[in-house]
Design a protein around this nucleic acid. Structure first.
Lengths: 200, 200
DNA sequence: CTCCACTGATTGACCAGTCAATCGGTTGTC
DNA sequence: GACAACCGATTGACTGGTCAATCAGTGGAG
């Protein structure tokens, strides 16, 4: 039964190769042949597993974004101080980058921030993340843990924007990306946002 | 002497048309002929005034970004409470969007966040903005107005990321863009960031 | 023999940038 | 004032190169 697992392997192999090439050259600048070469596979095989070059990126995004959405919803469902729930979200995103910087680079650069191409296609899913974070804020407001004079979606956008900007900073070497900075960053984010949100 | 001013007009006409088309379709999806059509001008004339399609966008970015850099540096030079200096920066950016949303959309979507294409080219100039904001934070820390345990560049990235994310939210209708929200946003930003930065 | 993963040469569309031709206005000469 | 020489602005058909996607075929497993 090597065939089924070989099939799965080849598909995965192509996806993983695509991450590397997209991260290195950007989606637009990579030819389908680059992906095939990187994966050590024939050009046509990419089209055996994917309908188009776009679909390769869509698949990569869908895989990871669903994990993010799950993590955010889980952070809220888990209960505990609302400040810690936001910390869990920041932590998940930062750790995603720490664990697989190339994939996160691709997702941020080519989808999340590529509002005119893939960002448009996935806008609804991206918005879901904003809304889930906003729900954490809204819950916190109801519980009296956060001040109520700021719209939850505004706070959510601010928070997410700050996180993504830090990742971008690491990705493009605007700020150094050591492990220390990763953990500092989580603290900074939560401190900055929450001390602004909590009533005094 | 109509010839000199006609020349200037045509160049401007092409730049303005490019803003509209880039905002509508995105840089990649717009053909040079789209720009020419929108400007009511022949295809080849675009190449009379600009060396390439890229140069059109570069010009648009350079024009506006230099204003932003000047505004940030002016905000710091002007003195006053450091909180207000950050408020001035947020205000300038938000008002830039209020005044010319299409241009700001193009600059954010196609340059600032297009890290694989134009963002790369203009990285140094973009970084200058982060650093100028960081200087405001550092000055604030020295004066005792801001807590000193957060690296200025981190704070700067967080702040700028939050601002840009809000603009993105308006651009793509994730959050409504009424005048009220513009001013709310300035307040939200400054309150969130500074109440997290100020010593208690 | 059948099926399907796999191959890679070929095709067809697309588009940035080129260039030779035209237009219209200005200057200079008698 | 008439004419010509000149020159930069303007035009748009055309070219060359680039790729995404297709498809006819190969080989190996069951």
């Amino acid at each position: 039964m090597a065939s089924k697992s070989a099939t799965v392997d080849k598909r995965r192999q192509i996806l993983d190769a695509a991450v590397r090439v997209f991260a290195r050259q950007g989606f637009h600048a990579t030819r389908v042949s680059d992906i095939a070469d990187e994966a050590g596979v024939a050009y046509g095989l990419v089209y055996h597993y994917f309908r188009s070059k776009d679909e390769v990126l869509n698949e990569l995004f869908a895989e990871r974004w669903s994990l993010l959405l799950a993590a955010i919803e889980e952070a809220d469902r888990a209960g505990g101080p609302h400040r810690d729930r936001l910390a869990a979200v920041a932590s998940f995103i930062v750790d995603s980058y720490r664990h697989d910087p190339e994939l996160m680079k691709v997702i941020i650069v080519e989808v999340t921030r590529a509002a005119n191409s893939f960002g448009q296609t996935h806008l609804a899913e991206i918005r879901r993340a904003y809304e889930s974070i906003a729900k954490i804020v809204a819950d916190g407001q109801e519980a009296g843990a956060f001040r109520s004079d700021i719209a939850p979606l505004f706070a959510s956008m601010t928070f997410y924007g700050a996180v993504e900007q830090l990742l971008s900073g690491w990705i493009f070497d605007v700020i150094p990306a050591s492990d220390t900075n990763f953990d500092q960053a989580k603290d900074l984010l939560v401190t900055t946002i929450c001390d602004g949100l909590e009533p005094r």
